[in-house]
Design a protein around this nucleic acid. Structure first.
Lengths: 221, 221
DNA sequence: CGTACTTTTGAATCGCATCAAATCTGGTGG
DNA sequence: CCACCAGATTTGATGCGATTCAAAAGTACG
C-alpha cells in the first residue's frame, strides 16, 4: 500500500520527511494482536492508518481499563520520551499500521523543522484532549458526562459513534446499563436526538415550551 | 531574583538558552490573581518557580474543576499549540513566575536542540501523568483511588501532600468527607500509615497475620 | 481574639454498580 | 438460506457507597 493512500486518511503524514518514510515499515495488524506489553523496551512508534489500536491497563482484579483508543493517528506518542512502555498496546480492530523505527524518528525530529512542529502540535493536542477527559470523569452524573462528551468531542454538538455503546460507557467511566438508561432518558426529555450511532445535542431555545427542566442536571422522573 | 536561584528548584530551566532568558520576565504572582482566562489569546508561557498556579474550569452550576495544578514547572504547556486558552489560569498560592514571551519561546525551540528535547520530554511526561489520572478517575471506589494515587505519584509507596486534603479530594474526584473517612478506615485497617501530610502504603507481606482482607478492595467493617 | 477555612463525624438520600434475564444483532458454518 | 452463536442492547430489581446537608471542633492568620 502507498503513502499517498495513507496521507488521504491522515493529513499529518504528509509532513513525514522522505528519509523517515524509507525507514518505515508498513504492515497489517490483526485484531487481538499485541503490539507491545508493559515493560517492553520502546523500539518503534506506531501510527494507526486504519483499524483501531488501544492502550490498555489492568487493575488488580483484572478489569480492563482503556487509556487511549486510536483510530487513525499515533498510539502511545508519549512513549517517545521513555525507555519502556507503561501499558499494553492491543489491536482491537484489524487494519494497517505504520511502524516508525525509534532512531529514525528521533533523527527526523532533529533535522526536519516542519515535521517537528507538526509532532509538537500533536502532543499538545493530546494533552488538551486528556485534560478534557479528566474533566469529564470528575463530573458526577451520567447525563453530565454524556453531554460533556458531545460538547467536547463532537462537531456542532453532534457525534457519530465509532465504537459500541458498551465501549463508550467504559470510556465515560460508567457501567453500560447506566449509559443505556441515561441515553433513553435524555432522548425522552428531548435533550438528545439519537439516530443509531448519530447522537446530537438539542439546545433548548429558552423561549416557548415551559415544560422542561432547567438544564442537563438533576433530571427526575 | 536570579536565574541561578530558579535553576536549583527547577533543573530543566538550566537548558533555557541565553537568548530566551533575556526575553523572559520574572515577576511575583499574588494568590487570587488571574494569569489568563478562557478565550484570551496566548501571549506567554508561564513557569511557576515558587507558589502554585491552577488551571481551572467551571461547569454549568459553577462547580470548580481543577485541570492542572503546578507547583514548580510549566502551567498550560499545551497552550503553546493553540491560539487561545481553553481554561482559566489562577494563582492559588503567592510565588514567583517566569513569563516567556511566546515568539521568543518558539524561536528558542526552533534553534536550540537540547532545549527542544527537554521540552518534548516535559510534554511526554505530562501526557503520561494525565493518562494515569484518567485511569485513577475511572476507578470506582474511594480507597482504590487513594491507593492508586500513592502508587503512581508517590516515591517508594509514600507521598508528602503539598496541598490540603480537601483539595486532594477534588483531585481524586471525591467529596472531602469521603476522603477523610476513607483515610481513617484505611489507617485503622493498617493498609495506610498517616503522619500528618506524610502518607505511606503498607504492603502486607502475605505470611503471618491472617486477619487481613486480601488486598485494597471491598473493605468492609 | 476573631474570622475563615480545614478537618472531622453523623445522618439521610440518591444514583450508580451489580446481578439477572430477555431480546436483538451480525457473522459463521452447515 | 437458515440455524446458531457470541456479543451488544435493553429492561428490571436490589444493595452499597458516594453525595449531600448539618454541625462541631481544630487551626492558621491578621
Amino acid at each position: 500500500m502507498e503513502w499517498q493512500t495513507f496521507i488521504e486518511h491522515q493529513p499529518f503524514l504528509e509532513h513525514v520527511p522522505p528519509g523517515l518514510r524509507k525507514a518505515t515499515e508498513c504492515r497489517k495488524a490483526v485484531a487481538g494482536e499485541m503490539l507491545f506489553r508493559v515493560g517492553n523496551p520502546v523500539r518503534s512508534l506506531f501510527c494507526v492508518a486504519t483499524g483501531e489500536v488501544q492502550l490498555v491497563r489492568h487493575d488488580l482484579r483484572g478489569t480492563k481499563i482503556i487509556l487511549q483508543r486510536s483510530r487513525g493517528g499515533f498510539i502511545a506518542e508519549a512513549s517517545l520520551g521513555s525507555k519502556a512502555y507503561h501499558c499494553d498496546g492491543v489491536v482491537s480492530e484489524t487494519g494497517m499500521l505504520l511502524c516508525f523505527p525509534l532512531a529514525a524518528f528521533r533523527a527526523a525530529l532533529e533535522e526536519d523543522a516542519p515535521f517537528r512542529n507538526v509532532w509538537m502540535g500533536l502532543l499538545a493536542r493530546e494533552v488538551r484532549k486528556l485534560r478534557a477527559q479528566c474533566e469529564r470523569l470528575s463530573l458526577n452524573g451520567a447525563a453530565e458526562r454524556v453531554i460533556h462528551y458531545i460538547e467536547s468531542e463532537g462537531i456542532h454538538d453532534a457525534i457519530t459513534l465509532n465504537q459500541s455503546r458498551k465501549a463508550w460507557a467504559s470510556e465515560l467511566g460508567l457501567s453500560h446499563e447506566v449509559l443505556y438508561r441515561t441515553l433513553k432518558r435524555l432522548g425522552e426529555q428531548g435533550l438528545l436526538r439519537i439516530d443509531g450511532s448519530r447522537i446530537s445535542l438539542v439546545r433548548e431555545s429558552n423561549d416557548g415550551d415551559g415544560a422542561r427542566e432547567p438544564t442537563a442536571s438533576k433530571q427526575r422522573t
